[in-house]
């Protein structure tokens, strides 16, 4: 009788280091961050509590509001764009095209590059004196203009473009794996019923890919929230503050501006926002699955 009881306790014993790491490294630092955000810390953390002063300061800063707004615009465009592009690429490759392996590698290749390299590449491409604009103008199209990174109305979309270039390949790889998992019988059945292929994709295959889409959205959202290196390399938040992002705001205040209190307040707001958006959605996704599983 003792054996079955002992087995789980050994297992939990093995998990103790893991739980320690999670508690100390993740939850612990998170709580510490929240704690600092209620203090008057500047260069070093101090224990002078000022209540919600830092949050008040944060939300009276134009730059923070602009960067939050930018994060939303960037996030929506980047996530939907990458999902749509990635899915279309996967569908194209799924038609058993020739050189599929080569194309797959080509599309996935940008993902092998870090955001910082992506940012630099696109910075050059969109530089009016060096990049695409100059090349096309040299070919004789004098009025051609493509200088998004230095245009305050377009800089944010320059970030989206570079982000899409980098991340679409990843979504494609995920979706392609999913498409390959779709049962051949479904295609046969749809062909017998005479349903056009696009309708099968949209109404049969996409719902089947739901878990993969969820994974892709989570992965993409993470890169939206931590969008820092791409911004720094491509526009550095500029021109002005037109392409600023919350993560850059936090980093600037943490180091250059010696505003640990304000930076941690911003980080806390980011955490709460992400939790408020993602948790209910993921919860409902899994909850639905559990219920569906129970029903069958």
């Amino acid at each position: 009788m003792t054996a079955p009881r002992k087995r789980p306790s050994t297992a939990s014993l093995m998990l103790v280091p893991f739980w320690l790491v999670v508690l100390v490294a993740y939850v612990g630092t998170m709580l510490w961050t929240v704690q600092i955000s209620f203090t008057a810390s500047k260069l070093l953390p101090v224990d002078v509590y000022v209540g919600f002063d830092q949050y008040h300061r944060l939300f009276s800063s134009t730059r923070w509001l602009v960067s939050m707004q930018n994060a939303v615009i960037f996030g929506v465009l980047f996530i939907t764009g990458a999902l749509v592009l990635g899915f279309l690429l996967a569908v194209v490759l799924d038609q058993k095209v020739r050189f599929e392996n080569t194309l797959r590698t080509v599309f996935l290749y940008p993902y092998a590059m870090s955001f910082i390299v992506t940012g630099l590449i696109w910075q050059w491409l969109m530089n009016p004196g060096l990049g695409i604009q100059k090349a096309v103008r040299d070919w004789g199209f004098e009025s051609f203009s493509f200088a998004w990174a230095v245009d305050r109305d377009m800089a944010l979309y320059a970030l989206v473009l570079a982000g899409l270039w980098q991340a679409s390949g990843l979504v494609m790889a995920l979706m392609l794996a999913g498409l390959r998992g779709v049962d051949e019988e479904i295609w046969k059945a749809s062909r017998i019923d005479g349903i056009p292929a696009w309708r099968v994709y949209l109404f049969v295959v996409v719902p089947m890919l739901r878990p993969l889409i969820l994974t892709a959205v989570v992965l993409l959202s993470i890169s939206v929230v931590k969008a820092f290196d791409l911004v720094v390399a491509l526009t550095n938040g500029g021109p002005g503050i037109s392409s600023d992002m919350p993560a850059k705001f936090v980093m600037d205040n943490l180091f250059t501006r010696q505003n640990i209190g304000l930076a941690t307040a911003a980080a806390t707001v980011m955490l709460i926002t992400v939790a408020a958006v993602l948790v209910p959605w993921i919860y409902s996704e899994y909850f639905r699955k559990v219920r569906a599983g129970a029903a069958t």
């Binding site: 500047k42 260069l43 800063s61 134009t62 730059r63 305050r152 500029g238 021109p239 002005g240 503050i241 037109s242 600037d252 205040n253 250059t256 501006r257 010696q258 505003n259 304000l262």
Partner: peptide, 19 residues
């Protein structure tokens, strides 16, 4: 000025310059 005020001044000036 302090580092944080310097940063705040930067924000004001750069917004004016670029708009």
């Amino acid at each position: 000025v302090s580092a944080s005020l310097a940063g705040a001044v930067d924000d004001v000036v750069t917004q004016f310059w670029n708009n």
